[in-house]
Amino acid sequence: MDVTLLSTGIANVASVSAALARLGVRAAPSVDPETCRTADAVVLPGVGSFAAGMAALNRHGLGTALKARIEEGRPTLAICLGLQLLSESSDESAGTPGLGVLPVQTVRLDGAPRLPHFGWNRIESAATEGLVQGGSAYFAHTYCLRPSGRLEEAGWRVATSVEGAPFVAAVERGAVVAAQFHPELSSTYGRDLITRWLERARAQSAVDTTQGATPCR
């Protein structure tokens, strides 16, 4: 199984590719909406500003495709800005709508002693059976999502960290994981998370194949 890497920018693409390569998986860069919609597994390695990230997605027609694949539960891993792009909007770029997959807004990480929040922080995760488990992961960001019951109501399992105040470290629903931290830079913790996600993606891809058709199309 190849992993499709949405290559709308250059930041952290090399790190994500290297992390996948260490697990024996090839990352195929793509900006094709149809590929984005139907690929077995997609990584959204967003880095940069919210407005620039949305503009890059929309320029290639990827926004709609990405939203559709997440709503269909197809294996997707969104990283850092990638998580924020799934929200409704961001304080960073007023007036730019996000994909709205997550029913919350991205806000500044106020209360942090220093911004950007650079470094390793603990992941508090109640769930033991989830893809995102407890441990320490690497963050590099200034904006964040705050924990909200609306996420759980929409079926998302939420893991949090604290920097001044609690913020969303990651959300997951089925084979969709969106992390504020960088799994590709989180050493063994990140490697294990990516491994679990790939296993789930492979399992889902195998089910799709045995059913002889791609669901939801």
């Binding site: 250059i10 790190s15 690497y138 830079l185």
Partner: peptide, 24 residues
């Protein structure tokens, strides 16, 4: 990068945006 799973900062001789992009 191929072996490293933690963040990597690179410096030295960065004079332009293109230099920075090449390093990334």
């Amino acid at each position: 990068r191929a072996v490293l799973g933690i963040p990597l900062t690179v410096g030295g001789g960065v004079r332009t945006l293109q230099d920075a992009e090449r390093l990334l």
